[in-house]
Design a protein around this nucleic acid. Structure first.
Lengths: 194, 194
DNA sequence: TGTACATCAGTGAACGCGCGTTCACTGATGTAC
DNA sequence: TGTACATCAGTGAACGCGCGTTCACTGATGTAC
């Protein structure tokens, strides 16, 4: 029974992992159950031994993907050197690789799709709060964390839409300057130059 | 011949308009040609008298929607009172109505869908540059405009995802403070309090 | 330990359905004389 | 101005296809004695 349960869990995670990659690359409606199961090394019929519906998978994938990102940020934000932690988060989020990676942040790839679906809307809410909290630990306050996350997500989305490496790089650089500058606002002192 | 051409153009625009609303509300893959034509007061077969394919419509809708937004911002940004112009743009973009409106900015609703489709990728690039330029006229420089647009787009997307009116309002308020504060950065002087 | 039976993750054919697209057609609007 | 013909925006039935889901089944792994 233990082997069985363990294998089952492993397969379940393999499906979630495969779907996570495919959803981010082609959009949720751009990927069928068949393609997901093939990527997970299985056939489509077995899908319903693991999920009641595709919508249930979407909700789990959305939550899982953002939860992992939240955990990473949480870990980094525990560092005693706040500015270094902020720089680590911001620089990796706003790196050129993030624009094309199949492991891109779900906030920049499937957030609008997820928000529209009643079944999965809300699945990302809790890890989203976690990301705001983690960022908040590296910045003067909560408003800076909320705006900082928004700036990063928006710049990645717009950089992809620009369809021009130069404009894309400008978006990322401008966002980086904006967020890093927030570290020195409010009670911490005067703004640095952007 | 003039009546015919005029009627044809009107119908064409009616289809684009209907598709624009439906795409933003349900996503591009969430709306069929049939639904679009019915909303435009026609039957689905007539669609191909106006567009070679659904993908062609997607590209035109994406471009048209953002072009209109760019023109609005461009007009506002011509004002002599830069700060008032900025406030007009920012406050309307970050109003609670923007979260649920069927005429929401396409950058916050269909940008990821559009960016993924080879046929429509790039359709929004030119009006996107226009929006950056317009915002730039109300802010000290180009980096502030790029970051400001990213912040506004990101905060609307995340506010929708929050699935909680309070957190949503926090995102919008934080973004508003961030962008308005940019008006006083760089060569213009020290930062105002957020 | 060996045997008989139970479980159940995974298979693959089949389903109904809605999609994007095609096409023969209609009938109102346009042109030619 | 009136008549005959041409045009073409729009109709609606039909198409092939891929989707999400179902289901009878298989066979490896588990349990009972």
């Amino acid at each position: 029974m233990k082997d069985r349960a363990q294998r089952r869990t492993e397969t379940h995670q393999r499906i979630v992992e495969a779907a996570g990659r495919l959803f981010r690359e082609h959009g949720i409606d751009g990927v069928g159950v068949d393609a997901i199961m093939r990527k997970a090394g299985l056939t489509h019929g077995g899908f319903y031994a693991h999920f009641p519906s595709k919508e249930a998978l979407v909700a789990e994938v959305a939550h899982t993907l953002l939860e992992k990102a939240a955990e990473r940020w949480d870990h980094i934000s525990q560092s005693s050197d706040r500015e270094a932690a902020l720089r680590r988060i911001v620089e990796s989020y706003l790196s050129p690789d993030h624009l094309t990676s199949t492991s891109a942040c779900p906030l920049t790839t499937i957030s609008t799709d997820v928000a529209r679906r009643t079944a999965s809307r809300g699945a990302m809410a809790e890890p989203l709060r976690g990301m705001v909290d983690a960022l908040g630990r590296c910045l003067p306050g909560r408003p800076e964390a909320l705006a900082g996350l928004a700036t990063m997500v928006g710049s990645v989305v717009l950089a992809r839409l620009a369809d021009d490496p130069l404009l894309a790089a400008e978006f990322l650089a401008a966002a980086e300057a904006n967020v890093l500058a927030q570290a020195n606002t409010g009670s911490r002192g005067d703004a640095i130059d952007v």
